[in-house]
Each structure stands twice: as structure tokens, then as C-alpha cells.
Amino acid sequence: MSKRVLICLVGLPATGKSTLCSELLKQATNYDIEHICYDKHITTVDHVTDPSAWNKARQALNQNITNLVSSNKAETCCVRSKVFLLDDNFYYRGMRKEILHIAQRNSCVFGQIVFRVSKELAISANNSRCDTIVAEETIRKMSNLIEYPSEAWEKHVLHLAELTSYNESTTPGRIELVSQFIDFICEQSPEKDPAVEKLKREADRDETLNDVVQQCDILLRKVISQKIKDDRRSGLNVPYSVYSRTKSLFLEGIKTGEISFGDQPVTTEAVSLKFTVIFDDTQVEN
């Protein structure tokens, strides 16, 4: 079955992320790749001079990614999986968690590829770029701030070996390693939406609770019937309304959780015992 996969590329500027994506686009055969480079979409604002506008532009891009992923739902019947390579620094864990939430809401697989280099090599490679050059101070700050994947939710992560030379960024072995990782992640289960899962758990709990209430209702009729017979043999005359009120208190206690059977089965004996306790308590109060 085909999947939709969101992969964050994590690392300092000029570490070969975009170059590797270009090579993958030429070689990919088992899946369709869409390369989304954040720098090409967020070009009109600077995160240093205008962080507020930069954040808004970033959120707008993430919304566009959400729309793009959502529009690909109809294509999941295809044989080939759709892999979105999100090309950014993603140096804060919170940035990656935003992508995780997109994956959760759209039943996508989520993963990360980590590019590690020394800040000196990143600065050197950045200065030799023929296109967009990042300020050296920005790279130095990012190097100190970057939060590499380590949390439990960051379970599908490929840590590429640290580069000692920029020329190593697209070696055949490195490309093959990334291709194998993408093959692997395309076989993994999609992320689950916590909100949907919570609703499912609540629905399951309510269904279980309703089953217990129904079981108790049936068994209480037998218990009350037996108590009335025992009362007659003993010469007692307990009004049925008293038993009926106790039954109502019992069932209400089940619904509110005040009365529970835990892991024990709901049996006539267990119901009778709890019913007797409630009955005795109400008689004492009266």
C-alpha cells in the first residue's frame, strides 16, 4: 500500500541537504519525491531583522504543505508512495513537531534525516556557494542552538555520518543509504492523530461502560428477586421501592466510576455483594 511520507532534513546551512535532494530526484525509482525547499519559499523576510514576519511566512508555508499533503489523499490508491522532502534547517525541535502534527492530522509517516558537520565546514561551504549565502554569524548561532532528534516521538531518524569534506555530501554510498532509509520509512505505519485516538478511547470506554451497566441491570433483577423471596421466607416486608432506589444508586455509581469491578468479572455474587453494601448504607442513613 502506498503511503504519504513527510521527512524533515535537519542540519546547518550548506551541509548538502538541497544537493542530496537533487540527486535523489534523479535516482528515485520506488517512490515519488516532492522537494520543498523552505529558503525558496521564504525569501522576502529575514528571521533576524523581522522574526515576526518570518514566523508568519513559515506558518503560511506549513499550511501550504498541509494543503498539498491533504490533496494527495486521493492518490494513496496508487502503487508508489509520495515522499515530501522538507528542506530546512529545522534546528528547533518545535519546528519539527509542527511537521509531526501535520503528519498526524493527515495519516502520514513522519521521519527525519540529520546532516552533521562542524560549523567551520558549514561556514566554509556556505562561503563557496554561488547562490544564497547565509550570514556567518547566523550559522554560528544556529550551531549553538540546534536540537538534534532525541525525543521518543522522533523514532524514525537517519543520522548521516559527519562530513569532513563537502565533496562527501553526494557520494554513491551516502545516496544509497538515504534511499534505503526512505524505502524503510515508506513501510512504516502512519502517525496517529492524538485527538482522534482520544475520541476512540473515550468511545471504547463508553461502550465498555454501557456493557457493564447492562450486565449489572440484568443481574440486579435476579438479585432483587432473590432478596424479595428471602424476605418473604423471613417474614420481612421491605418495599420494592427501596430495592428499586438501591438499584438506581448502584447503576449510577457504575456510570460515575464510584463503583467498579476492576479486572474482576461481573458476576451475580459480585453484584449481590456490592448491592447489599449500598442497601445497608442507605438503611443506616434513613
Score class of each variant (00 low, 15 high):
Glu187Met: 14
Cys77Val: 12
Asp206Pro: 00
Glu252Gly: 15
Lys227Met: 13
Val271Gly: 05
Ile113Asn: 11
Thr49Ala: 09
Trp54Glu: 01
Glu202Met: 08
Leu209Phe: 00
Thr138Leu: 10
Pro194Gly: 06
Lys56Pro: 01
Ala270His: 10
Val114Ile: 12
Thr132Trp: 03
Ser81Lys: 02
Phe261Pro: 09
Asp206Lys: 14
Asp193Pro: 05
Tyr91Lys: 07
Thr171Glu: 04
Glu176Asp: 15
Cys37Lys: 15
Lys247Asn: 02
Ser118Cys: 01
Thr246Phe: 03
Val109Met: 08
Gln215Ala: 10
Ile228Lys: 12
Ile182Met: 07
Tyr92Ser: 01
Glu98Thr: 15
Phe250Ala: 04
Val117Ser: 07
Val266Gln: 04
Asn55Lys: 13
Met142Cys: 13
Ala57Lys: 07
Arg221Val: 08
Ser248Thr: 15
Glu168Lys: 06
Asn72Trp: 05
Phe261Trp: 12
Gln188Leu: 13
Met142Ala: 14
Arg105Glu: 15
Asp131Pro: 00
Cys78Trp: 03
Asn237Gly: 05
Ile102Ala: 04
Ser225His: 10
Val213Tyr: 07
Glu168Cys: 01
Gln215Cys: 11
Ser244Asn: 11
Ala74Phe: 13
Asp204Ile: 05
Ser272Val: 07
Cys130Thr: 11
Asn126Val: 02
Val48Thr: 12
Lys119Ala: 10
Cys216Arg: 03
Asp131Arg: 04
Gln188Asn: 14
Val5Thr: 09
Asp46Trp: 08
Ile218Val: 14
Lys119Asn: 05
Thr76Lys: 03
Tyr148Phe: 15
Val223Tyr: 00
Leu12Phe: 00
Lys141Gln: 11
Ser272Lys: 10
Asn144Cys: 06
Asn72Ile: 07
Phe84Asn: 10
Leu86Gln: 04
Phe275Cys: 10
Glu120Asp: 15
Ile65Glu: 07
Asp281Gln: 12
Lys198Ile: 03
Lys119Pro: 08
Asn55Tyr: 02
Ser52Arg: 14
Val109Thr: 10
Lys222Gln: 15
Ser18Cys: 03
Ala60Thr: 15
Val271Tyr: 05
Glu285Ala: 15
Gly11Arg: 01
Asn126Arg: 02
Gly253Phe: 10
Leu219Met: 09
Leu86Lys: 01
Asn144Leu: 07
Pro172Lys: 10
Lys56Asn: 11
Ile139Gln: 07
Lys155Gly: 05
Asp281Lys: 10
Glu147Cys: 11
Ile185Leu: 12
Glu285Asn: 08
Glu207Trp: 03
Ile123Lys: 02
Phe115Ile: 07
Glu98Gly: 09
Ile42Ser: 08
Thr164Leu: 02
Arg232Glu: 09
Ile33His: 02
Ala203Asn: 09
Asn55Pro: 00
Tyr148Asn: 03
Asn144Lys: 12
Leu6Glu: 01
Ile139Asp: 04
Tyr91Glu: 13
Lys255His: 09
Thr66Asp: 05
Val277Ala: 13
Ala135Ser: 06
Asn62Trp: 03
Gly257Ile: 01
Cys78Val: 08
Glu147Trp: 06
Val284Met: 00
